[in-house]
Structure formats: C-alpha cells, structure tokens
Simulated scan of single mutants.
Amino acid sequence: MSSGLLPDPEHCVSSAFSLFDHAEPVSPLVLASPHSGRLYPDSFLRQSRLDLLSLRRSEDAYVDLLFDTAPDLGVPLLCANFPRAFCDVNRYAWELDPGMFREALPEGSLTNTAKVRSGLGMMARVAGPGRGIYRQQLSVAEAHDRVTRYWLPYHEALEAMIARCVATFGTCLLLDLHSMPVLPHLRLPDIVLGDLHGSSCAGEVVDNLARQLSAENLSTGRNRPYAGGYITARYGAPLRHVHVIQVEISRGLYLDETTVTPGAGFTALRETFRRLVPALAEVAWTLPDVSRAARHSKQQSADEQG
C-alpha cells in the first residue's frame, strides 16, 4: 500500500499483533484494534466446548479491515491477531476467574472485578450469552503463557507507538477501535465515544471527533453504555500528553452478526472511514499540548509536496 506521497507502510507481523506503521506519521494520531483478531490457536479450539462460530461472535469482527487504508494515509494501525476470547488485552493481565484454574493464581491477581464476575476476564470464561468456553479447568501455566506470548507483546507495541508519537509531536491521540452488538432493547447511536467521563481525553477533542463523524451522517453518543476499558484507563493521561478515546461502532452498520461475515454495509462504511482518516488526523492536531514545532514542520512538508 502506498499513497505516493509517503513511504510505504512498514508491516510488522508477530503471532501477537500486526503493526502497519510509517517512519513519518502525518499527525499525533494512533489507531489500534485490540479485539478484531481471528487467528484461533488449535490448542485453544481443542480446549473449548464451543464451536468456532460461537467463539467468533465475541470478536469485534473486521474492525481492523474497516480502517486498513489508514496506513496508506500516514496513520499507524496496530491490530491484535489473536481473538479476545483467547486473550483480552483490554483487561489487566492477571484479571482472572480463579474458578477456571486448578492451582491458585499469583498474588496480586484481580479475581473479583465486575468483568471477572461476568465471565469476561483476560481469559474469558464465557462466550455469548453465558455459554462456558472450557471443557475443564486450566493450569496457571496456561495463563502465564498467554500473558507473556500475547498480552505483553501487544501492550509493548502499543506503548512504543504512543511513546514515539509523544516524542515526535509532544502528544498523542489514541483511538481504541471496537464494535458493539445491536441490542434490541436499547436504541444506541451508530458510534459511542468513551472518554471515561472526561478523564482520558481533552473534551474539545472528543467534541471535534463527534463533529467529524456527524458530518458523515454517523450518529454519536458519549460514554453510555461504553465509557472505556482497561486500555482507556491505562493509557489515557491528558496531563502526561496522552489522550485516549474508545470508539464503539455498531455492528448493525457493517456486519452480519449471525454468520460473522461482512454485511451489506461493509464496503460503504470502509469507504467512509477512508474519507475520514485525514479528518481524524486533523482532529489530533487540535490536542491542547501538540508541539507547535512539529505542526510547523508537517505543514512545511505538505506545502513542499503540494
């Protein structure tokens, strides 16, 4: 992929993640998709009492593909390759249900959070409406393996992207990309923007993002019912120049939720986000702590290319 104006995206793939990067990103914007992984380890499938389709319904399916043109436009994109039912990087590493394991979990594990009680810790106990995943209890060594081989590499890659962005631009805007199911009993907007009720991102930046989405006829809501998860809380620190917004996209816009295949609206929505990426990059320039020197340098480069 190449725009003709920027170097080709640098594609880094591991068992844990795919990183589509640029040596010269165009703005302080970073995109990440932690829940769209669809490479299921064979060992996990053997452990599961559920079929593959049942497991796949827990994915934020194809969110990565909705934004796969962003690297062509100079915006880095990080995607988990593994599924969230196997390892959820939007949880603390040792946020686990002790009942899933034959041995005691390590000291410091979070065993009584709301997510654990609902069966959705770092290693989910259930998929879908309360359907148990595992045939039998697991060893703690299994959890340790998933932390070291999947959870940790993803977060190391994300941390490195954010650190480089801050070093280059003085600040960073991370859009943490997710999808939300259609819930018949709730009338939800097309997209919910979560900023942990104002604590993970400057309010004017969230407002600017909402305006850009509305200009594409996408209705938006704020924090209800999704205010943000572990990633939003861990990395969102406006006083340290890192702003994070969790972006929840309605699956009704682009996905057949029954078959977990791209729906009739997929191509149109992907094109919408392709058009939106330059606008999202501009939103990142409105961060209150952006480096004026970096902005001037990028503007000068754009003028020279024009």
Rank of each mutant, 00 (worst) to 15 (best):
L6I: 00
H11S: 09
C12K: 15
V13Y: 04
A16T: 06
F17M: 05
D21I: 09
H22F: 05
P25F: 06
P28V: 04
V30W: 00
H35I: 03
D42Q: 05
S43C: 12
R57Q: 14
A61Q: 06
T69E: 04
G74P: 02
V75P: 12
R84H: 12
C87A: 14
N90I: 07
A93S: 03
E103H: 10
E107D: 14
S109Y: 06
V116E: 02
M122G: 00
A124M: 15
R131Q: 15
G132P: 10
Q136N: 08
Q136W: 05
A143T: 06
A163H: 02
P184K: 05
P184I: 11
H185P: 06
R187M: 13
R187Q: 13
P189R: 04
I191H: 08
I191L: 09
V192A: 00
G194E: 02
D195G: 03
S199N: 02
C201D: 11
E204H: 14
D207V: 08
D207G: 10
L209I: 12
S219Y: 04
G221I: 09
R222I: 00
Y226L: 05
G229L: 02
Y230T: 08
I231S: 03
T232A: 02
A237P: 00
A237N: 13
V242K: 14
V242I: 11
S250P: 05
Y254R: 09
L255E: 05
L255T: 11
E257C: 03
T259W: 12
T261F: 08
P262V: 06
G265D: 14
E271L: 10
E271V: 03
T272M: 10
T272S: 06
R275H: 06
R275M: 06
L276M: 10
A279M: 08
T286K: 07
T286S: 02
L287D: 04
V290G: 14
R295D: 09
H296F: 09
Q299K: 13
Q305M: 07
